[in-house]
């Protein structure tokens, strides 16, 4: 298997990562996701990593890339469901994924996207303020 399925849920895209990501797979995901975002005109992307037991600096970089590139094509990315052990390890490694939005689970991630995109419609200039 060389591709991770990307689902369209309403106005958002949902990616659930359930296999151990090796580099090619991760890079494919980056390319596919960005293509899907521009093709479908999606404003929000949810990446569910609750089944992922390990995120190293390479995968961290992919997540960061996806968030940054989506932002350029006017979409928001939320990474949801990171496990405690993975979060502690990432911080210890020195990666804080500062440019990526996060949420506890898919439901909370959806809420966050609705909130952010709602405020966007209101024309507020505070869309990217959550980078701390």
């Amino acid at each position: 298997m060389d591709r991770i399925p990307i689902l369209k849920m309403g106005s958002f895209l949902l990616v659930t990562i359930q296999v151990d990501l090796y580099d090619r797979l991760a890079l494919n995901l980056e390319t596919d996701l960005i293509r899907m975002v521009s093709e479908t005109n999606t404003r929000g992307v949810l990446i569910d990593i609750s089944a992922v037991g390990l995120v190293d600096s390479f995968m961290g970089r992919i997540l960061n890339n996806i968030a940054t590139i989506s932002r350029i094509v006017d979409a928001q990315t939320v990474v949801v469901g990171m496990q405690p052990a993975v979060a502690i390890t990432l911080v210890e490694l020195g990666l804080t994924l500062a440019g990526v939005h996060t949420a506890l689970n898919v439901e909370k991630g959806m809420e966050l996207l609705h909130k952010r995109l709602g405020s966007d419609a209101g024309g507020g200039g505070q869309l990217y303020d959550n980078s701390e």
Binding site: D56, F58, T89
Partner: peptide, 14 residues
């Protein structure tokens, strides 16, 4: 522990 495993595997991966 799970945290120990995760740290070790991540280090190995790097």
């Amino acid at each position: 522990s799970l945290l120990g495993q995760t740290k070790l595997i991540t280090a190995a991966s790097e």
